[in-house]
Write a protein that binds this DNA or RNA. Structure first.
Lengths: 199, 199
DNA sequence: TCATTTTTGTAGTGGTCGCTAAATTAACTC
DNA sequence: GAGTTAATTTAGCGACCACTACAAAAATGA
């Protein structure tokens, strides 16, 4: 983090944090390609030169918006406690967040930049990497549970992690298609029936 | 189907079916907004006026491509036989198709047009409706199985259908992110552990 | 006050978007 | 052959894309 005391020159007339929040919601709702700079102008109330002065480029602003989303709106898999409860909470929290009123439906990362023009495929790599990190984090958590004897030794941690990820991604799609909080929670609950047992 | 014997005027110099197939693959890989008319020109080998003469507009071509995809590349839930086997086959077939070499990864419908510009939201309604129809078809199939005593009476058919849909949608996302056939099949297999029992 | 620094609004840049008018070409019928 | 019909190529339409040069504006330090 580079702090700077400007103290010289004309001061900013806007709250950078609020502007980033507005841009994040625009990207969240319409995706990277579906959000034009003109869209960002009306979403933030700024003119293009101010946006570029503060964030550099549309792509850089998108990356900052992704980081902000992960920080403020991302569900987290609790790293301690009983693993089954942790995963169940994780899925239910996602169900709530994806259908929360006053925010765009679905997840900004789970279903981001899936179809993107060949020219700007670079934009898609960041969300894809974030999804891979999420999958990997789940898998590590499950693997630890297996090693601790909390899950059967024969548990396929990688496949189970992919299932948890698929439920998240599917809930995101269905939230965008209008699924309600209760419908998503029912989905998450029934998905937990796939949880491995010692049988 | 309206057949026509033109017999008059200059004949087409291209195979409309092959052109539609090429356009479908372009939309499949890059999505609606990510596929420009210039992209379609190089994918099909045609010039814009020929495309417009044969298909009307980019949006109409996209709809035709969606129909073709559903007809030729869509996995189907077998309407008869044991329901558990039918669903398992459905998921495994999707796993295979989403990771099949020589074709774009993922599903053209499951994860289509999720983030789209506000101006052209109409394009997204068709894929969304197709997803809704798929979910509804699964739910009806499950409901029949419940009525036939093949599934426990307390089975939440709607939630179970949403879970099956979520697995499909999640597999599509993960296939786009590079998941292999085996990884997707393992996901599908472990998902079937959520299948209800009489306990 | 005056020079300096940074942000602001104005007004564009070249490029690409989806799409099409006009002329040419290639088949038909008579 | 002449006339008709439709698909082709060429060329370019207005609109929007992401982005920026420029100068006015608003704060500072001297």
């Amino acid at each position: 983090m580079e702090m700077r005391k400007p103290s010289r020159g004309r001061p900013r007339s806007f709250d950078e944090d609020a502007v980033l929040d507005a841009a994040m919601r625009a990207f969240w709702e319409h995706g990277y390609e579906g959000t034009s700079v003109t869209t960002l102008e009306s979403a933030t109330g700024l003119k293009a030169p101010s946006i570029y002065g503060a964030f550099g480029s549309k792509e850089a602003l998108y990356q900052s918006a992704l980081d902000r989303y992960a920080r403020e709106h991302g569900a987290v898999l609790r790293p301690d406690g009983p693993v089954r409860e942790a995963v169940a909470e994780f899925l239910l929290e996602a169900a709530d967040r994806f259908s929360e009123g006053g925010l765009p439906p679905g997840c900004m990362i789970s279903t981001a930049a899936l179809g993107v023009a060949a020219a700007q495929r670079g934009v898609a790599t960041r969300p894809a990497r974030m999804r891979a990190q999420t999958l990997d984090g789940i898998e590590q958590r499950l693997r630890r549970a297996v090693e601790a004897g909390e899950l059967p030794a024969k548990t396929d941690a990688a496949a189970l992690a992919r299932l948890v990820g698929a439920v998240i991604q599917g809930m995101s799609v269905q939230a965008i298609d209008g699924a309600s909080r209760d419908e998503l929670r029912a989905l998450a609950t029934i998905a937990m029936n796939a949880w491995p047992t010692d049988g």
